[in-house]
């Protein structure tokens, strides 16, 4: 499944890139967005977080690599290391559909998922990324990412963000129980020195939900973590 998706994605991308000599209206662009590169002060040990994506493609077709990494500094271990490789195709003015693979190197045990979903800019300026995942064990889960920019000034921007996870079946090995599994919300205040470089501070609150909450607690972890964050948003 994993390799098939990769090949498909690459194939779509290659097909989408004809050369047009005199015009740049079908050019391929690459851009790296590091949405979060931050230090989290939180009970139970501070954490470093990196989250971003690399996009390569033209207006209609893109290959997107995503990474989301949580590193516990005090204990020197990765709590989360999640990677996705997607083929994204424009389906409307504001939305792309995507298919791809997701590989979680952490938490253990590793999981590989097939991904399908949509992303884009919803009415009222909400940036949305909604995905469905099927793990190699056949477990289906869902995720919604949303954020919103509130311009206090042209450069000072307050960004509320939300990630909601749900599972349709239990995956006991990874402490997942069917139902809503976790909610992560944050509020970050950034200052855009340049569009490419914006330091920020904020708060982040991560809470496991439902039966997942009890599973996590049983494993000796805190199902409810409030952290203060400082970091930088980058764009290349």
């Amino acid at each position: 499944m994993k390799y098939l998706s990769l090949v498909l994605a690459a194939g779509f991308l290659m097909a989408a890139l004809p050369a047009q000599a005199e015009m740049s209206d079908d050019d391929v662009f690459a851009a790296l967005f590091v949405n979060r590169l931050e230090y989290r002060v939180q009970p139970g040990g501070d954490m470093a977080v990196a989250e971003g994506q690399l996009r390569i493609g033209n207006d209609e077709h893109k290959l997107v690599g995503k990474a989301d990494i949580d590193y516990l500094i005090s204990s020197g271990r990765y709590e989360k290391a999640e990677f996705q490789l997607r083929y994204q195709r424009m389906v409307s003015d504001f939305f792309d559909l995507h298919i791809g693979v997701r590989q979680d190197l952490k938490p253990s045990p590793n999981r590989t998922y097939a991904v399908i979903g949509a992303s884009g800019l919803a009415p009222q300026w909400f940036e949305i990324d909604a995905s469905a995942f099927v793990s190699e064990k056949g477990d289906l889960s869902l995720r919604l990412d949303a954020d919103y920019d509130i311009l206090i000034t042209q450069r000072l921007v307050l960004q509320p963000a939300l990630t909601l996870d749900a599972a349709l079946s239990d995956d006991r090995d990874t402490d997942i129980a069917a139902g809503l599994t976790s909610l992560e919300t944050g509020l970050r205040l950034r200052y855009e020195i340049e569009r490419e470089f914006a330091p920020y501070i904020g708060v982040n609150w991560e809470r496991k939900l439902g039966a997942t909450s009890s599973l996590v607690r049983t494993s000796g972890e805190d199902p409810d973590i409030l952290s203060f964050v400082a970091g930088v948003r980058l764009m290349f």
């Binding site: 662009f29 851009a31 967005f33 207006d59 509130i150 311009l151 206090i152 000034t153 042209q154 450069r155 569009r195 764009m235």
Partner: peptide, 14 residues
């Protein structure tokens, strides 16, 4: 292409 409002520093604020 990266950000269509890259050069718009006249957006509406709070």
């Amino acid at each position: 292409k990266k950000s269509s409002d890259y050069y718009n520093r006249d957006q509406r604020t709070v």
